[in-house]
Design a protein around this nucleic acid. Structure first.
Lengths: 225, 225
DNA sequence: CAGGATGCCGTACACCGTAGCGCATGAGCG
DNA sequence: CGCTCATGCGCTACGGTGTACGGCATCCTG
């Protein structure tokens, strides 16, 4: 019973065992050649199938993409027992996401599409909400605080991946016209040496500082850092 | 002299006046039907041309996309005179970007592609670097601090646009299973009421707090908020 | 054994980006 | 004036994409 046209069955086992292998193969293609290389025909070829047979197990390419996303989202979940400290948990969550994005850059290109809301994504949301709660942030602002961490992590990973994959861009940036854009050129020069992971950790601390300061208990909204 | 195969000529006037109209039309299509709807054939149709004639003015679709991006990037530039206060300038920069992303959501989907480095983007980088400099942040950390603001702004806009465009997702989220995911459901309920603009400004303050606190002068790296 | 479900496949359609080449027009120059 | 040549335009074609639809064989169940 592969699928009605209704909702996506997230559980591979409940859908069909073959579907899991399909997602495996799709992930392999994406890892080797990028998300654009994941086509139904190529996927069929790799599985020894004939293009249209893929649709026996997957309703559409969108669904396939959602399943790929959900699969990798398992890597985003922090293993229990979770640390008591909310800040520490939040840091772990962000770190896992950042690592996953660097390991599977295609995820970043998939964010704009039909957003996935599989069980793993929900589990992650639960962990995140738990962390924010234990920071003493009130419910009304919890989601805002959360989104700062998540969205910044994604943005930072996208930036890092773009620079990693486009060395030409990197050179171009560091040859920025220092006459017309003095401050930009200077900032870019200063950014050159440091590894992405170090920058991430440092910036993450900055982001967490801001969250605790502005959304945490005893926060003074009018205060400046 | 439309274009050698070498570098992209950013100046429409120097390239060909017709190219400017092409970019106009492409922007119109993207605004009406999204980035995926921008195809060479459709663009030609809207201009009364025959598909391949588009390539008389534009070397490739990638170039077209870069030109579209560059065009809108003009909206990101803060008009002079710039405010003295670095924090205020940074806030203006982020606000303009956020507004532009909401007005032209296709930009968010274009981030993953060949990154554009046109004059408007460079001007924006210069303004950003100026702001960070006047905050007293040392050169080595300027780029990190900057990227926090820019990347978070992009991520937040992407999130807002996704929710705005997919009302079904919105309902699904607020019907989140409160038994299995109690904290997530609670946080989502709390986030419901507030308008995106308000959330943006509040969160932006949080982000700026974190930057000033951790990267500003007299920052203590081991301090917690 | 009959019947239905299940997986597989071939054909076909409507798109996409663009390489290559031919044609017409019009401006510059001798 | 006549010649040349750059410029813009268009046609055809190639290889790629997602997928609607209908037909087939196999196998499990009643």
């Amino acid at each position: 019973m592969p699928n009605r046209a209704e909702k996506l069955e997230w559980d591979d086992a409940r859908a069909s065992p073959a579907r899991a292998e399909l997602v495996d193969a799709a992930l392999a293609i994406a890892g080797e050649a990028g998300l654009d290389a994941v086509s139904i025909r190529r996927l069929a070829g790799r599985m020894g199938l004939r293009t249209m047979s893929v649709y026996t197990h997957v309703a559409s390419k969108d669904d396939l993409l959602a399943l790929m996303f959900e699969r990798i989202s398992a890597e985003l979940i922090v293993p229990t027992p979770l640390p008591r400290d909310g800040r520490e948990l939040l840091r772990l969550i962000a770190q896992r996401a950042f690592d996953a994005y660097l390991a599977h850059p295609w995820m970043l290109h998939a964010f704009g599409r039909r957003p996935a809301t599989g069980p793993n994504q929900l589990r992650r949301a639960e962990q995140s909400a738990t962390a924010v709660k234990s920071l003493g942030i009130e419910t009304a602002k919890a989601w805002t605080a959360l989104s700062i961490v998540h969205e910044w992590t994604m943005g930072h990973a996208l930036h890092a991946v773009t620079l990693r994959e486009d060395t030409a861009l990197n050179e171009r940036l560091h040859a920025t016209d220092a006459t017309n854009y003095p401050n930009a050129a200077q900032a870019l020069k200063g950014a050159q040496v440091r590894p992405a992971q170090a920058i991430f950790e440092e910036a993450l601390d900055g982001v967490l500082d801001g969250i605790e300061k502005r959304f945490g208990p005893h926060a003074d909204p009018d205060d400046r850092a």
